[in-house]
Design a protein around this nucleic acid. Structure first.
Lengths: 348, 348
DNA sequence: CTGAAAGCGCTTACAG
DNA sequence: CTGAAAGCGCTTACAG
């Protein structure tokens, strides 16, 4: 490995001066600087990241720790998160450590030990639950971190979208078209984003002087098979919904399949909207008829998240750096007006 | 941050002795050792990974660098690779850095710079192409690494399966049942594993005194949509295949869909086999009728790969550490015998 | 069994 | 504009 000492010997200058020349300091003779830089290039010098870290107290490494899981469901989403995040973090000149724990590992302990061992500048937290122990732990440690999403129970830096608005916007559109029997295939209510979306849906109904039918509100794992079976269920009701709001495009795909299976036509018999995270593997674009709904690309979140985390690390005193990303809405094929509520009590 | 100095002050011993006590050296008084360990636990001491790295010349970090890609196709597989690899590497007490480059980034340069900067002990290379520049680069650098798969043009440590046997086994089974018009939906022939599988298929035909119909050998991107369209194509031939070998379960899913679309019954009209990588997101288990074929779980590869890489790093002189993992075969629903070749020239 | 010293490769006051 | 020195936190001969 080529070190400053090698260059120093090569050009006949002190290590100090070589360091300064390479570091771009002003108090170095221009000719000297050039001579040093040439030698560094010729010898293939790369500053030793370890030594620099020890001196500066910063490693340039950020980590994400995820609990291991034999459950592919919970992983489907994770893929795009990991790839997108890594790409953005790498682009910022930082290294991204992905630590996949053993199933059942103590994630809080992993964060603590990794941080205490001094090699990690900061952390990314995804999928926070209310009163998330990881957030509490990192806050107590004074470790820099940023959260994708929000924990309503404790203050922390985050990047998120307005999930209340997600639910409200889609429900409002359908209500405005005259739909009354609207189902919502929401994510797990243990997570704040799902709670907020439900609140948004509730609020849209309230704004129309109505209230939701609890039997049409479902909380499911957000993947295609679950969406399909939940939709099959809904379509078999005596009084089936005329519209379904899906929490993401994977659920929506399940809804499309279930509708086809049941001989229910979209958008003729059933309007479908979904929130679109802009996932590459599960694009909203492939649907026939077109899938409408709210949209906020996760890729934008990774860019913000990485940049904000870098700044938080540099600031060293964690600022409450919050950011709400934009949301767009497209009605897709959900343009079917319903003049009279089709739903009527059905006699036995 | 708690350092040796803090413990040293706390217990009234030299830093040297504290280090030895914690390091589990024998030449330390048992009572002293206990006292030191207690203090370390009480103060929440974790050895500073950076300092240790600088001293020992080893960071405990291994990296995988993948070219960024806006193409989801190439990513589908990567997910399970990344998660599985990270889990195994983490389990071994190493850190796993995932570096996703910008689209079009110079991957060789990234490896070089990352290694030269001294923070990385070794690398994992996946999906090698013949005469792979990454392998050449790391070999030249003298950097420890291991490859999943093989580059036939240069020697290097690897973990792989016998892909010749994959092709040979599946083709032989079908030939033995009497099938003659056998299609093969293979992966890209730019990769050695696909070349080997083709050779295996060729060899099985040769062993039966036959040779393949080049029109039935297809090289495609190994995902469902491509498998589906390739299979649709094959089933529309004047003289369609009676059996299809799929390179993986995603392709097989496409074949099942295409068969359903075309009204072709499996296994009545068409036998299907596939190689199964044991992917969680694309399980071979969900098929109806059951999907047979060769099988080698990637999860086993990650375990071997991680353990071997750790050993290579420790040895510091890269040994040619090669490993061929086991393959199993199950015929699934592909039990349909064909007494006479159904294929006959069809007049215009 | 214990401690003082050197050194991993770098950065950065401090002194010239 | 340049250099000698200290120090980041650790490990490890070397000497007692």
């Amino acid at each position: 490995m080529v070190t400053l000492k090698d260059i120093s010997r090569d050009v006949g200058l002190s290590i100090t001066q070589v360091s300064r020349a390479l570091g771009g300091h002003t108090d170095v003779n221009a000719a000297t600087r050039e001579r040093v830089q040439l030698a560094a290039t010729r010898l293939g010098y790369r500053p030793n990241a370890i030594a620099r870290s020890l001196k500066t107290g910063r490693s340039g490494i950020v980590a994400m720790i995820v609990a291991g899981s034999r459950d592919p469901d919970s992983n489907a989403h994770l893929f795009e998160i990991v790839m997108g995040l890594s790409a953005e973090i790498s682009a910022l000149g930082l290294q991204f450590v992905l630590h996949v724990g053993q199933p059942g590992a103590d994630v809080v302990k992993l964060h603590t030990e990794l941080y205490r061992s001094g090699g990690i500048d900061g952390f990314v937290i995804i999928g926070p639950s209310p009163a998330d122990p990881r957030i509490k732990c990192l806050t107590d440690l004074g470790a820099p971190f940023i959260v994708h999403g929000r924990d309503p129970e404790q203050p922390h830096p985050f990047v998120d979208i307005d999930n209340f608005d997600v639910g409200r916007t889609m429900a409002d559109h359908l209500l405005s078209l005259g739909h009354r029997r609207i189902a919502f295939l929401n994510g797990p209510l243990s997570e704040f984003f799902a709670i907020q979306r439900q609140r948004g849906v509730d609020a849209a109904f309230a704004a129309h002087g109505l209230s939701v039918d609890p039997a049409l509100m479902r909380s499911i794992t957000m993947i295609e098979p679950q969406g399909r079976s939940a939709a099959r269920d809904l379509l078999q009701l005596d009084n089936p919904p005329t519209a379904i709001i899906a929490g993401n495009t994977m659920i929506a795909r399940g809804v499309y399949h279930a509708a086809a299976d049941a001989g229910v036509s979209i958008p003729g018999d059933l309007s479908v909207l979904a929130h679109d995270d802009g996932l590459e593997l599960f694009p909203a674009a492939g649907f026939e008829p077109p899938l409408g709904g709210t949209s906020a690309h996760l890729s934008a979140a990774w860019i913000s998240l990485s940049a904000d985390l870098k700044q938080i690390i540099a600031a060293s005193k964690t600022p409450m750096h919050n950011r709400i990303l934009d949301l767009t809405f497209d009605k897709g094929s959900a343009t079917q007006s319903i003049l009279v509520d089709r739903s009527m009590p059905v006699g036995p």
